[in-house]
Design a protein around this nucleic acid. Structure first.
Lengths: 348, 348
DNA sequence: TTGTACGCGTTATCAT
DNA sequence: ATGATAACGCGTACAA
């Protein structure tokens, strides 16, 4: 068991001072070639590596970024993490994760835990509960401590910081316009309750698309699901509500859903009711998931480019961290990632 | 901008010594109630929290565990992470992630980066490339440094450490036996090349099940895919190979696949060839993914309980970390998580 | 050319 | 009851 070796131990072993060792290891011209060689050889032999914690303490910089997300078992978020990790690694940073599990208190606790020196900055997408409570004191507190934050996807206008979002409004609008172009006359919307920021924007895109094409907005074509239930419960309720929706509005020939699960459920219910997709009913979902690709028929989706969002968020954060010498110019930017419509078999 | 306050600053502000502040904040009986109150109130006001990095340095303990995985955009691994994070948080630890992206060198670099003081121990599932190269020096080096490792899923017998695995052999065997019970006479296997440890074990389970039930093992019913290609390429090749398999062996009435993608592809190809599942062909896949549940028909699977694996791995690691006072009794355990057969519509 | 001293923030031990 | 000091591991300004 060869515990990690320290400068001190090398110094003692070679009978020189600690600073001599330190300098020798970074090839300082102050040290004679002789001793340099001796020390470097010894260090190599014992595989010396400086201790990160000591460096962090000394430099007041951990080279670690924290990412706080509501859920990790979710394609969108895991892709974002991949993007963050990719860029972080390239630029010499580590990534530490905190899961809020959609809970406000876990989000707060997690952030406080990490903010006490463990990391240099946050990348965060807030929990549903936080969005409902509209309590952002933990975010402002963190920012006030001089720790930069980058928010992504679920973003809050009250907080001043860098943000990375998707053009939810336009993405949704384009999707609905696609349905209209494809001949749909009666398009249903399946969305979440309004407090979820992204759901709201996508709903607005749907509304605008309809009105711009002179289609009347019918409130009974808009299904708003409560997504605070657990998965199974949610799924059951979802299917019964969609069944209800289709049965009481037989003219429906298009569906726009704000996420993958809703879109898939719509297709499933359609099949049960004997409607064929895309002939009788065309479906588009907003998502970056795997299910769409493997569904039958393949689901046409609005792709969110999650990994790209993660990459951009990481760049923004690290840029801020590494320019923090020149403070005062508190210029925050909001980067909008453009969505793409990925056409599969659920549309004509 | 209220930067984080330190003991030193409090001491200066209240005109006492640093150690007085430190003691007062932990309610030491050495300090008079008067000063304690004063100091505690002040600390509360400025929201004092001890700096984690300083504590880590002093205690030589970071209370952080590192998890190294090949890929995060994968249901199995993200569920494992969720399990690890859950337990880690409960027990006062943070989690830092490193992605190897199935590359040996990235795995090594990541581990070295974290091993220099950033974390107390590792939870790891090694990359395919590492399995191929059979180079485990980074693992032994880490262990020799006194840093505990827990391996999960993709495990190596040459390395002595705690391990968490799934009963790949039995899970596969049970699945194939299920097919046999359901009347299948000619069961195909879709698996990976042999160097992937889990694929090997599952293949062995298939072989044993057949031989125990006196079914002859036919090598042309065993399709071994090379999974080092990229996703799209892999998928295309997969489908053509499966098509080939089905066409040249028309008697096939059952398929056991070592992962979700292979099973789904089998169903897809079957549909194209006009075979109906489960009437003409029954399919079971080894997986913990989302696709199975939402496939049509729903795919019967061998569930791996990924989250439970993560939880167990975290407990093992933390147990070891917190008992390390009493060394010498180097007792390592291998925990086997039992798989379940989740029956859906792809079997009778 | 090498070594000493200090500081990063904290706690524990040992004075006063 | 309070304070000074050392130590965790490192780097660097300054002294020898």
């Amino acid at each position: 068991m060869n515990r990690k070796i320290t400068l001190k131990q090398i110094a003692k072993e070679l009978d020189v001072s600690i600073s001599t060792v330190s300098k020798a290891l970074k090839d300082s011209p102050e040290i004679s070639d002789d001793t340099k060689q001796k020390i470097q050889a010894f260090a190599k032999l014992y595989n010396y590596k400086p201790n990160n914690i000591a460096l962090s303490l000394k430099n007041r910089k951990t080279n670690t970024i924290g990412i706080i997300i509501p859920e990790i078992v979710h394609h969108f978020f895991s892709k974002v993490i991949r993007g963050v990790e990719l860029v972080a690694n390239q630029r010499g940073y580590n990534v530490i994760i905190g899961l809020s599990n959609e809970s406000f208190s876990k989000e707060v606790i997690n952030m406080e835990m990490l903010a006490n020196g463990s990391i240099d900055g946050f990348i965060i997408s807030i929990s549903k509960e936080t969005q409902q409570l509209q309590d952002y004191h933990h975010l402002t507190a963190t920012i006030n401590q001089g720790m930069p934050i980058v928010m992504f996807d679920r973003v809050v206008s009250e907080i001043e910081c860098d943000k990375v979002i998707v053009n939810d409004f336009n993405g949704a609008k384009n999707a609905v316009e696609k349905l209209i172009e494809n001949g749909c006359k009666s398009i249903a919307l399946i969305t979440t309750k309004d407090y979820v920021s992204v759901g709201k924007l996508r709903t607005q895109g749907y509304i605008d698309a309809l009105s711009e094409h002179n289609l009347t907005l019918e409130s009974n074509l808009m299904l708003k699901m409560d997504d605070t239930l657990d998965y199974e419960e949610h799924l059951d309720l979802l299917e019964s509500e969609i069944t209800q929706l289709f049965k009481s509005n037989q003219k429906i020939d298009g569906v726009f859903a704000v996420n993958e699960l809703y879109a898939l459920s719509a297709m499933k219910v359609a099949r049960k009711l004997g409607l064929s997709v895309p002939e009788d009913l065309q479906v588009i979902g907003f998502t970056d998931g795997v299910l769409s690709k493997h569904a039958t028929p393949g689901l046409t989706t609005v792709s969110q480019h999650a990994q790209q969002m993660g990459e951009k968020a990481a760049h923004l954060l690290i840029d801020k961290l590494e320019s923090e010498n020149t403070d005062q110019e508190e210029e925050y930017q909001t980067v909008v990632i453009t969505t793409d419509l990925v056409e599969r078999e659920s549309t004509k």
